[in-house]
Design a protein around this nucleic acid. Sequence first.
DNA 1: CGATATTGTGAAAGCGTTTTCAGAATTCTA
DNA 2: TAGAATTCTGAAAACGCTTTCACAATATCG
Lengths: 346, 346
Amino acid sequence: MNGKVTLKEISQMAQVSPSTVSRVINDYPNVSQAVRERVMTAVRETGYQPNPAARSLALGKSQVFGLIIPKSAASVCADPFFSYVIQGVAAACKAYDYVLSLVLFHTIQDESRSVGRILSQQMLDGVIMTATQRDNQSVYQLLDSGIPFVLIGQHDSDQVSFVDSDNQAGAYTAVTHLIRMGYQRIAAITGPLNNLAAVQRKQGYLQALADRDHQLDEAMVAEGDFTEVSGYTAMRKLLPQRPDAVFISSDLMAQGALRAIYQEGLSVPDDVALVGYDDLPPAAQTNPPLTTIRQPIKRAGQTAVETLIDLLAHGSEPPRRIILPTELVIRQSCSATRPLIREVMH
Amino acid sequence: MNGKVTLKEISQMAQVSPSTVSRVINDYPNVSQAVRERVMTAVRETGYQPNPAARSLALGKSQVFGLIIPKSAASVCADPFFSYVIQGVAAACKAYDYVLSLVLFHTIQDESRSVGRILSQQMLDGVIMTATQRDNQSVYQLLDSGIPFVLIGQHDSDQVSFVDSDNQAGAYTAVTHLIRMGYQRIAAITGPLNNLAAVQRKQGYLQALADRDHQLDEAMVAEGDFTEVSGYTAMRKLLPQRPDAVFISSDLMAQGALRAIYQEGLSVPDDVALVGYDDLPPAAQTNPPLTTIRQPIKRAGQTAVETLIDLLAHGSEPPRRIILPTELVIRQSCSATRPLIREVMH
DNA sequence: CGATATTGTGAAAGCGTTTTCAGAATTCTA
DNA sequence: TAGAATTCTGAAAACGCTTTCACAATATCG
């Protein structure tokens, strides 16, 4: 139908100046009722929509936020974590009247070259990025570019604003729970250790063991990369050590671990207890349902948007560092009865 | 660092006119080598990035495509289908040098009000939308707006360009497979019947039964809404009819059905065989792995982008109607040995 | 009722690009 | 080597909006 009627044409139809039309469509005061109505009529009749590019140009801002997810295609699809991040960010953008522009990087080479292009292809008022490898350059590129910028997850640089959950505390809680339940040989499957969150969760695990005088056995720790398959592989590596419980740094890896355990004909939680991390819906649908650490992922997305708006309003200094709490969710993948049995056995 | 150096400043630094700078940064011919280098130097020194809003305004296009997913927050997160659509569209956008803007509608009220706002908030060169309820107005709004527009999934209107997979044929293949395997009491769990794809799959089911002279029993068909929970509920409704096989219109619902079956202490495929639809990765990770109909979802996303570019280049008439093939993927959720057993029993 | 504050309106100058047009400088042709 | 063809370059007008400024019209005050 329309698509190309301009403000000037409206102004002619309504017999007023362009300035006045602008005032009307932006709801400014100081326009007489009569004129306002004449303009609104013309707007309605023509289906006029202001041209966003022109508006951005005049205003010097676009009302668009970018969300950058530097992950391989496969991971983004397979890991519901990203669905929730996207969802949270999208919802908050909408609530605050921003448009969301989504950028998925597929390969790492892709990545560093692309940050510049993203910024030049589109006028973005700010950027949110999910955490990435520790040595990744994109963070510095964004920092250098001067664009307001919030990371979901942490980074080594202390200049970045970020939103994250308390990884170490979450892991600590999970492992402490296992210890309290009486498990003795507690293994761990970590995320990729070039990822800060993975490191922090591992530290929580180690700390919990240390605080309760449990021995650390290096062979009881296997590194995964947050994928289902890596959980499977790691668990196969761990099984010969005969752990009676495993703390796993993501639910998705826990699903892989489950596969490996069943394949050996063992049962959960009787032979091996499991605690996961994330508490995304699939966690409740495994068999048995997973005990896990709930991360408020959607809320992190939302908070990231709010933080970005804060940066826009009050400047990027000092960087905001927001840590959201986690929560232990108890389901059936570690037995509630086990400690009783143990005590009887003593 | 930068962020606000303009073309005009570059032109002063390089002692040339703005027109020439524009020519250089857009790689036009007819610029002397000397001048070109002077300009490039200035660009490099300042870290100049052209302002995308100004460019869009001058060019009359933005290089931005919108992807609209009119779904509740919950479904988008829980159903990997959408991850794959997003992934496919994002990858293709990047390949063709478009920026992707993502819009998730959370509620239906949201939806119809919003289409107009989306178009006015951002300058979009085209829109891709995933299928929605049949009576939904958004499609007509988009059509009316005149913006180039491709639907992923079909619609009643014959004016829309769309990309879809062959739902009816896929379902037909699945059910025929079950019949060939010797199953007799074949039930179905459909998607929400206000969704065209759901209807087409149901029709494929009915057709396959009819073609092989199987009786249709209304009580053997239950309607779900593509969610896990609805699969669970539907399966519970179906179980009293003692089906020996069920065709389920999405893998996610099949997972729910599995839960219901296990809860009754029955086994798959010995008591009930299952065929799903989609073949997203979770399908291979269920226990047992799901036989299912593979839909090329990522490719549909990619094709949608390509179609949109085609519309841009050659106009929207006539509407493009693209149907992608599906494929039967055989795994363990329906027994390969069953027909033999049956024949022995006869 | 004249002076002053307030409200309503339009002209015009941006915002940062691209592009058309014309003119200047260079190269080619015979 | 004169003329024509070609290659470079810049001035200026768009693109469609917002906003400042000035001014007219109206309302308010003592």
